[in-house]
Amino acid sequence: MTTTLTIRGLHTTIGTSQILHGLDLDVAAGRTTVVLGRNGVGKTTLMRSILGYLDHTGELTFRGASLAGLPTHQRVRRGIAYVPENRDVFAGLTVAENLRLAERRGAEPRYELVFDLFPELKQRLAQTAGSLSGGQQQMVSLARGLLVESHLLIVDEPTKGLAPRVVKEVVAVLRAVREQSTLLMVEQNLMAAGELADDVVILSEGRIAKTGDRRILANREELRRYLSVARSAEHGVD
Protein backbone atom coordinates (compact mmCIF):
# COMPACT_ATOMS: atom_id res chain seq x y z
CA MET A 1 0.00 0.00 0.00
CA THR A 2 1.42 3.42 -0.90
CA THR A 3 1.33 6.30 1.49
CA THR A 4 0.38 9.76 0.28
CA LEU A 5 1.60 11.58 3.37
CA THR A 6 4.17 10.43 5.90
CA ILE A 7 4.68 12.34 9.13
CA ARG A 8 7.63 11.63 11.40
CA GLY A 9 8.41 13.35 14.67
CA LEU A 10 6.09 16.32 14.20
CA HIS A 11 6.49 18.93 16.91
CA THR A 12 4.34 22.04 16.75
CA THR A 13 4.49 24.97 19.12
CA ILE A 14 1.97 27.78 19.21
CA GLY A 15 3.35 30.81 21.04
CA THR A 16 5.10 29.29 24.01
CA SER A 17 3.04 26.14 24.41
CA GLN A 18 3.97 22.95 22.64
CA ILE A 19 0.84 21.34 21.18
CA LEU A 20 2.18 18.38 19.19
CA HIS A 21 4.89 16.26 20.78
CA GLY A 22 6.62 14.19 18.13
CA LEU A 23 3.76 12.74 16.16
CA ASP A 24 4.10 9.94 13.57
CA LEU A 25 1.36 9.25 11.05
CA ASP A 26 0.90 7.61 7.65
CA VAL A 27 -1.96 8.57 5.38
CA ALA A 28 -2.59 5.74 2.94
CA ALA A 29 -3.29 6.57 -0.69
CA GLY A 30 -6.87 6.13 -1.80
CA ARG A 31 -8.15 5.70 1.74
CA THR A 32 -9.93 7.87 4.25
CA THR A 33 -8.13 8.51 7.52
CA VAL A 34 -10.25 9.92 10.32
CA VAL A 35 -8.61 11.70 13.25
CA LEU A 36 -10.39 11.74 16.60
CA GLY A 37 -9.53 13.16 19.98
CA ARG A 38 -10.81 15.31 22.80
CA ASN A 39 -11.40 19.01 22.33
CA GLY A 40 -8.17 20.95 22.35
CA VAL A 41 -6.00 17.89 21.92
CA GLY A 42 -4.36 19.25 18.77
CA LYS A 43 -6.35 17.87 15.81
CA THR A 44 -6.68 21.21 14.08
CA THR A 45 -3.07 21.99 14.95
CA LEU A 46 -2.06 18.79 13.14
CA MET A 47 -3.99 19.81 10.02
CA ARG A 48 -2.65 23.36 10.10
CA SER A 49 0.90 22.06 10.51
CA ILE A 50 0.52 19.87 7.43
CA LEU A 51 -0.73 22.92 5.52
CA GLY A 52 2.27 24.93 6.71
CA TYR A 53 0.30 27.52 8.68
CA LEU A 54 2.19 26.79 11.89
CA ASP A 55 5.90 26.56 12.58
CA HIS A 56 6.83 22.96 13.13
CA THR A 57 9.76 20.56 13.16
CA GLY A 58 9.86 16.98 11.99
CA GLU A 59 9.50 15.38 8.57
CA LEU A 60 6.50 15.76 6.32
CA THR A 61 6.78 13.73 3.12
CA PHE A 62 4.04 14.22 0.57
CA ARG A 63 4.04 11.89 -2.45
CA GLY A 64 7.70 11.14 -1.95
CA ALA A 65 8.89 14.74 -1.60
CA SER A 66 9.60 16.73 1.53
CA LEU A 67 7.32 19.65 2.38
CA ALA A 68 10.00 21.23 4.55
CA GLY A 69 10.23 24.98 4.22
CA LEU A 70 7.35 25.25 1.75
CA PRO A 71 4.84 28.01 2.47
CA THR A 72 1.15 27.15 2.59
CA HIS A 73 0.25 28.15 -0.96
CA GLN A 74 3.00 25.96 -2.39
CA ARG A 75 1.91 22.95 -0.34
CA VAL A 76 -1.59 23.45 -1.71
CA ARG A 77 -0.24 23.65 -5.24
CA ARG A 78 1.54 20.35 -4.69
CA GLY A 79 -1.91 18.87 -4.33
CA ILE A 80 -3.17 19.29 -0.77
CA ALA A 81 -6.70 20.72 -0.64
CA TYR A 82 -7.93 22.22 2.61
CA VAL A 83 -11.42 22.57 4.04
CA PRO A 84 -10.85 24.26 7.41
CA GLU A 85 -12.61 23.77 10.72
CA ASN A 86 -14.78 26.85 10.64
CA ARG A 87 -15.48 26.64 6.93
CA ASP A 88 -13.83 30.03 6.42
CA VAL A 89 -15.89 31.05 3.42
CA PHE A 90 -15.28 34.62 2.29
CA ALA A 91 -18.48 36.01 3.74
CA GLY A 92 -18.54 39.24 1.77
CA LEU A 93 -17.93 37.52 -1.57
CA THR A 94 -20.48 35.66 -3.64
CA VAL A 95 -20.55 31.90 -3.94
CA ALA A 96 -19.27 32.23 -7.50
CA GLU A 97 -16.36 34.39 -6.31
CA ASN A 98 -15.55 31.94 -3.53
CA LEU A 99 -15.32 29.19 -6.12
CA ARG A 100 -13.39 31.30 -8.61
CA LEU A 101 -10.69 31.85 -5.98
CA ALA A 102 -10.11 28.10 -5.93
CA GLU A 103 -9.35 28.04 -9.66
CA ARG A 104 -5.72 27.55 -10.44
CA ARG A 105 -3.52 27.99 -13.48
CA GLY A 106 -2.69 24.68 -15.10
CA ALA A 107 -5.64 22.87 -13.53
CA GLU A 108 -9.06 22.41 -15.08
CA PRO A 109 -11.80 23.67 -12.71
CA ARG A 110 -14.31 20.85 -12.20
CA TYR A 111 -17.50 22.91 -12.02
CA GLU A 112 -19.65 20.07 -13.30
CA LEU A 113 -18.46 17.71 -10.60
CA VAL A 114 -18.97 20.35 -7.94
CA PHE A 115 -22.48 21.22 -9.09
CA ASP A 116 -23.37 17.54 -9.30
CA LEU A 117 -22.39 17.19 -5.65
CA PHE A 118 -23.95 20.49 -4.59
CA PRO A 119 -26.82 21.32 -6.94
CA GLU A 120 -28.00 23.95 -4.47
CA LEU A 121 -24.88 26.06 -4.96
CA LYS A 122 -25.62 26.45 -8.65
CA GLN A 123 -28.82 28.29 -7.73
CA ARG A 124 -27.00 30.52 -5.26
CA LEU A 125 -23.96 31.61 -7.24
CA ALA A 126 -24.81 35.29 -6.97
CA GLN A 127 -25.59 35.19 -3.25
CA THR A 128 -22.97 36.35 -0.75
CA ALA A 129 -21.51 33.43 1.18
CA GLY A 130 -22.12 35.22 4.47
CA SER A 131 -25.88 35.11 3.89
CA LEU A 132 -25.90 31.29 3.58
CA SER A 133 -26.81 28.83 6.32
CA GLY A 134 -24.06 26.93 8.12
CA GLY A 135 -24.69 23.85 6.03
CA GLN A 136 -24.60 25.79 2.80
CA GLN A 137 -21.37 27.48 3.86
CA GLN A 138 -19.88 24.06 4.53
CA MET A 139 -20.86 23.10 1.01
CA VAL A 140 -19.14 26.18 -0.41
CA SER A 141 -16.04 25.31 1.58
CA LEU A 142 -16.09 21.69 0.38
CA ALA A 143 -16.80 22.78 -3.19
CA ARG A 144 -13.77 25.10 -3.02
CA GLY A 145 -11.64 22.19 -1.84
CA LEU A 146 -12.88 19.96 -4.63
CA LEU A 147 -12.86 22.42 -7.52
CA VAL A 148 -9.42 21.45 -8.74
CA GLU A 149 -8.11 17.93 -8.48
CA SER A 150 -5.86 17.23 -5.49
CA HIS A 151 -3.92 14.28 -4.15
CA LEU A 152 -4.98 14.75 -0.55
CA LEU A 153 -8.12 16.41 0.75
CA ILE A 154 -7.88 17.62 4.34
CA VAL A 155 -11.24 18.28 5.97
CA ASP A 156 -11.49 19.52 9.58
CA GLU A 157 -14.79 18.71 11.32
CA PRO A 158 -17.14 19.16 8.36
CA THR A 159 -20.24 18.26 10.37
CA LYS A 160 -19.54 20.48 13.37
CA GLY A 161 -22.50 22.59 14.42
CA LEU A 162 -24.81 21.31 11.68
CA ALA A 163 -28.36 20.01 12.08
CA PRO A 164 -28.71 16.22 11.85
CA ARG A 165 -30.36 16.40 8.43
CA VAL A 166 -27.51 18.55 7.09
CA VAL A 167 -24.93 16.25 8.68
CA LYS A 168 -26.44 13.43 6.60
CA GLU A 169 -26.11 15.49 3.43
CA VAL A 170 -22.48 16.35 4.13
CA VAL A 171 -21.69 12.72 4.93
CA ALA A 172 -23.37 11.60 1.70
CA VAL A 173 -21.20 14.02 -0.26
CA LEU A 174 -18.05 12.87 1.49
CA ARG A 175 -18.99 9.23 0.80
CA ALA A 176 -19.03 10.08 -2.87
CA VAL A 177 -15.78 12.02 -2.59
CA ARG A 178 -13.91 9.28 -0.73
CA GLU A 179 -14.37 6.92 -3.66
CA GLN A 180 -12.14 9.15 -5.80
CA SER A 181 -9.69 10.67 -3.33
CA THR A 182 -7.35 10.32 -0.44
CA LEU A 183 -8.96 11.95 2.55
CA LEU A 184 -7.58 13.04 5.89
CA MET A 185 -10.31 14.34 8.12
CA VAL A 186 -11.11 15.28 11.67
CA GLU A 187 -14.53 14.00 12.59
CA GLN A 188 -15.89 13.86 16.13
CA ASN A 189 -19.34 12.72 15.10
CA LEU A 190 -19.01 8.94 15.55
CA MET A 191 -21.87 8.16 13.19
CA ALA A 192 -20.20 10.21 10.45
CA ALA A 193 -16.76 8.80 11.29
CA GLY A 194 -18.16 5.28 11.10
CA GLU A 195 -19.59 5.87 7.65
CA LEU A 196 -16.43 7.40 6.24
CA ALA A 197 -13.34 5.96 7.90
CA ASP A 198 -11.03 3.35 6.48
CA ASP A 199 -8.33 4.14 9.00
CA VAL A 200 -8.67 5.75 12.40
CA VAL A 201 -6.17 7.80 14.39
CA ILE A 202 -6.79 8.84 17.97
CA LEU A 203 -4.86 11.79 19.35
CA SER A 204 -4.25 12.37 23.00
CA GLU A 205 -2.08 15.04 24.60
CA GLY A 206 -0.43 15.95 21.29
CA ARG A 207 0.58 12.38 20.52
CA ILE A 208 -0.93 9.45 18.66
CA ALA A 209 -2.69 7.34 21.27
CA LYS A 210 -3.99 4.68 18.93
CA THR A 211 -4.18 3.89 15.24
CA GLY A 212 -5.90 1.12 13.34
CA ASP A 213 -8.62 0.49 10.84
CA ARG A 214 -12.30 1.36 11.21
CA ARG A 215 -12.89 -1.51 13.63
CA ILE A 216 -11.49 0.75 16.37
CA LEU A 217 -14.75 2.63 16.18
CA ALA A 218 -16.70 -0.47 17.18
CA ASN A 219 -15.13 -0.52 20.63
CA ARG A 220 -17.23 2.25 22.16
CA GLU A 221 -15.98 1.66 25.68
CA GLU A 222 -12.38 2.32 24.72
CA LEU A 223 -13.31 5.23 22.48
CA ARG A 224 -15.16 6.89 25.30
CA ARG A 225 -12.04 6.69 27.43
CA TYR A 226 -10.07 8.60 24.80
CA LEU A 227 -12.77 11.08 23.96
CA SER A 228 -14.60 11.77 27.20
CA VAL A 229 -14.53 15.36 28.31
CA ALA A 230 -15.23 14.44 31.92
CA ARG A 231 -11.91 12.64 32.17
CA SER A 232 -9.94 15.58 30.95
CA ALA A 233 -11.77 17.84 33.40
CA GLU A 234 -10.84 15.50 36.25
CA HIS A 235 -7.22 15.83 35.31
CA GLY A 236 -7.40 19.56 35.10
CA VAL A 237 -6.68 19.67 31.39
CA ASP A 238 -8.52 22.21 29.16
Binding site: Y53, T72, H73, V76, R77, P84, D88, L101
Partner: peptide, 9 residues
Protein backbone atom coordinates in the same frame (compact mmCIF):
# COMPACT_ATOMS: atom_id res chain seq x y z
CA UNK B 1 -4.79 32.65 5.53
CA UNK B 2 -7.68 31.09 3.67
CA UNK B 3 -6.49 32.69 0.43
CA UNK B 4 -3.15 30.94 0.97
CA UNK B 5 -5.06 27.75 1.69
CA UNK B 6 -6.44 27.92 -1.85
CA UNK B 7 -2.93 27.89 -3.30
CA UNK B 8 -2.64 31.63 -3.88
CA UNK B 9 0.55 33.54 -3.14
Amino acid sequence: DMVRGLGID
